[in-house]
Nucleic acid binder design. Structure first.
Lengths: 347, 347
DNA sequence: CAGGTGGATTGGAACGATCAAGGAGTCGTT
DNA sequence: AACGACTCCTTGATCGTTCCAATCCACCTG
């Protein structure tokens, strides 16, 4: 009665019904309606039914801001969108974000994107945290020297990382990661099973722990098979040209019959070199990439590639977030998932 | 004084300072602090300086929930994440989302992702709208028969569409789109300038208005140049194989020297056919794709491709949103942007 | 039949901000 | 000296929800 009702048919923008509106119409108190929504067990079945019907009728949905204010939680998870950079295949993130949005919605959370600034890597976090705009963060860039995880820990902000705390082995925050070594081992063993013995590695510079991890998988599989690796490894920048160059050198100097690469980008370089030399991928020389990117799938000669279980990563992250936010003792601090191999014509 | 202060050094999670805390410390009233944040002009320079200093000192940031409740706005923009679908190159969206996040942050908004459900395309919108969780939406899938735009209009929800209302020419909501015809015209004229006269088209099925739009650009440019087009056009599914097949048929029957494609995916198919036939892309046969996707950039023989000005689209959308939300008369209802051509080795 | 018990429901008070008035104080004008 | 106008700041009320404690009521018990 105190609320403004639409005068005419409904042309004036109507403010949505409130708890009080529903309560009045249903002949109960506000709190009872609130309980019908949040603690149905507290109501007598008859009352519950009646209230629910009115809620349905009026199309009531609790006002998010009011609820957030009272409960001191926003049901939002912050995800920083790294500054745009052309070229690199971070389209992988797309798959991850998709599942993250889906699974966190199942847990009652939405995903809030906020811009990242290279000059001020923690600015966005700070703002959202202090204004209590989000309940927690998902941090994706855990590369060397990234201050975000440390900063968040220091500020007691709840967050889960996609990626191990490489340079902070004593960090206590929960994380989920993909076992890169297991992936390249999988790739190498796949090639070994195909009869290859001279399998080369093209990876990144030594200061990338992720790159070294992936390299270790190849190295381990080769050693386990009792095969030599000297002269079969190359470390370059993550560029198509670099991959092509490395492949050319390796082919000339060590005559490998197969390549395992730290990324699809490098694998594309290898394919380019093969093309120039009139070598057929898959039949003459086998190639395996990493990430199962768009490119690997669309390339005319399908590129075999290590596929990260991003869906499982997202599920694991959301589970960890739930534990974190309900102040449960975390089931596990770190979760390491094993990738699979998407086998295509290139191997 | 009524608030709980940390007993020890700061181990107990401290709730962030409130307006009242700042006010007390600065020796002013709540409202004055509020004004210092929102209407600095109202304060005397001295007071403003003092309040600002305390704000800085205490690390105060307005509580989002409280502000949202009072002002009836969330400063959030909803963006539906379409159900995941492997393979198709919607990685383009990545570029768009990036800029959208950046530009909307400049305008004081954050982007909220919510999951899309194929069975209930408007469910997510409905929830967020009724719970006043977002101020507006950005709608990206405006393909034929998509009920979202209509539904949102009917429910008087503020939104801006990326894409023209193809099947509802009398729709009144603001939109921003890319002129596909202008893009393919650009591509065709580029090829004409290179001396090509037999330029083929590979596009989508007739029921795609976007596909027909892009086709029209090629057709127009050819007509304007007084060149024949019969036997030079093909309509297929948006798959690599389809593109390869169409290219093979066209090469056999009409001997074109260049291809303009409705997508990079189709262009990849063409490149595959060229590879099989030992024809060199760029020198023997020219190929142009559409979308300037990851694939076009990473492919060893760089693929010339029509590049959508997604950054400008995002800027246009945010501008339209601002007008919409400040109840200004929209400057323009629809904004049509012209794409550019990313020229690489394939042409 | 008074008193205890526990389930169902209620009303007041917060959460932390902004809105809408209202009060000091200063100034110039009459 | 009284007045209004203006600047600057303060005080209650309010947004819509959930928390907290109290109340009501039916039922059981000794």
């Amino acid at each position: 009665m105190s609320r403004t009702e639409p005068r005419a048919a409904g042309f004036i923008p109507v403010s949505p019904p409130t708890l009080a509106d529903v309560a009045e119409r249903a002949g109960v108190s506000r709190q009872t309606v609130s309980n019908a929504v949040n603690n149905p067990d507290l109501l007598r079945p008859g009352t519950l039914e009646r209230v629910r019907q009115v809620i349905e009728e009026m199309g009531y949905s609790p006002n998010r801001a009011a609820r957030n204010l009272r409960t001191r939680s926003s049901q939002l998870i912050g995800l920083r969108v790294a500054p745009a950079q052309e070229g690199t295949a971070n389209a992988m993130m797309d798959r991850f974000v998709h599942t993250l949005v889906d699974t966190s919605a199942d847990a009652g959370y939405h995903v809030l994107l906020f811009p990242g600034d290279n000059d001020d890597p923690v600015g966005g976090y700070d703002n959202l945290l202090r204004s209590t705009a989000v309940d927690a963060f998902v941090v994706t860039d855990t590369y060397l020297g990234n201050p975000q995880a440390v900063w968040l820990s220091e500020h007691r902000a709840p967050f889960v990382a996609f990626g191990r705390p490489w340079d902070h082995p004593d960090a206590t925050h929960p994380w989920v990661d993909v076992d890169g070594a297991a992936g390249t081992r999988l790739a190498t063993e796949h090639l070994l099973a195909k009869g290859h013995t001279r399998i080369a590695w093209i990876g990144w510079r030594k200061d990338s722990p992720i790159g070294e991890d992936r390299r270790a998988g190849w190295l381990g599989a080769m050693h386990d098979a009792g095969l030599p690796t000297t002269g079969l490894a190359s470390r370059v920048e993550d560029l198509v040209q670099s991959g092509a160059g490395a492949a050319a050198v390796l082919l000339d100097e060590s005559a490998p019959t197969a390549f395992v690469c730290a990324s699809d980008t490098l694998a594309m370089g290898v394919l380019h070199t093969l093309w120039i030399r009139q070598l057929a991928p898959g039949t003459d020389i086998a190639v395996v990439g990493f990430d199962d990117s768009q490119v690997a799938q669309v390339f005319p000669v399908g590129l075999t590639s290590v596929r990260q279980p991003l869906e499982d990563v997202a599920v694991g992250i959301v589970r960890a977030l739930e534990d974190l936010l309900s102040h449960l003792p975390a089931a596990t601090q770190g979760l390491l998932l094993t990738p699979t191999l998407a086998i295509r014509e290139s191997s």
